[in-house]
Design a protein around this nucleic acid. Sequence first.
DNA 1: CGCGGTTAATCAAAGCTTTGATTACTACTC
DNA 2: GAGTAGTAATCAAAGCTTTGATTAACCGCG
Lengths: 171, 171
Amino acid sequence: MTAQDLDFWSFVDAAVERTRERLPGIDPEAMRLILTLYRVTNMVVYDMESVVHRPRGWSYPGFRLLFTLWVAGPMEAKRAAELSGMSRQAVSALVGTLSRDGLVSKVPDVKDRRAVRLSLTTGGEEAISAAFSTHNDREQLWAGTLSAEERDTLVRLLAKLGAREGVRRRR
Amino acid sequence: MTAQDLDFWSFVDAAVERTRERLPGIDPEAMRLILTLYRVTNMVVYDMESVVHRPRGWSYPGFRLLFTLWVAGPMEAKRAAELSGMSRQAVSALVGTLSRDGLVSKVPDVKDRRAVRLSLTTGGEEAISAAFSTHNDREQLWAGTLSAEERDTLVRLLAKLGAREGVRRRR
DNA sequence: CGCGGTTAATCAAAGCTTTGATTACTACTC
DNA sequence: GAGTAGTAATCAAAGCTTTGATTAACCGCG
């Protein structure tokens, strides 16, 4: 396998091999795992975003925030950041767009006047309900690559990875 | 499990449950798979970026492009986009930053004067060699969560997912 | 009450990514 | 050889994310 014949996936094999030659101290299998994880996820996200969300005028982060509010109900911006895995600044910027578009409403919290309370507007509620079916169709397309048992195993192993302690988390 | 008690991970369970109630037609397990995949990867990337790359003044995409050139040698911008999984515009913008910082050099292609040929500078070569060990240390931290057999299984299942045909790819 | 420390949100600047348009060049076809 | 289609790269505008700074409000302690 020379550098000229590589494609997106065989690049991972080449990377592992070349790195092993040049830096004998590294762990090639750890490298392969992270590299593969990153590439697959990017591929899935790109597909979902470009097929499902951009045609509706949304970004993937926009969908995620709407989905968070749809699942867990109205909440403070800080909490939306925690649950969706975004930074508070990102939520703040995103809410700007989504409230401009009439999907999310933002009202000052009565108890704590520093905080803002986010909720879906009626339009946002309808939009997310309609979008989610299409989103899930696409999720099924991806999940359909694996057997039910393989899906369970994959989810279990990913969750185990995600339960890792002592790593840096968004704040 | 009420909405008030949720955290980043239990949100996935709540999302599956609430969606099942409200949209009976969807496939909850497909949803759980994609949701978990996305969250784990984001967590890993955030950790790697904030612990390894930002302290060195790099972004994760910057590292990825340098790494691509390090593994596969000098190449045209278009090819760097294919191998790294970025768009051509993203590579173009990123090369602006990296060449300004003296890590990548960009010379017009002799054969095809539309194209540019990218390569690591000496400084870029040294920087990526030095950074990669730290990067791999962190990969090992993550991979160490799983047994060797679990890692193999996870890589195999992710690769199977990534081999999915008929999805939208970056161009 | 008043001060100091903490917290919620936002602002600002820089960087990456996206879509869509433009420029420069190559390659094909008549 | 001239015209047309296709390709490589870049530009432009909009959006998201990041770090760091700022503003406004809460909270505890004296």
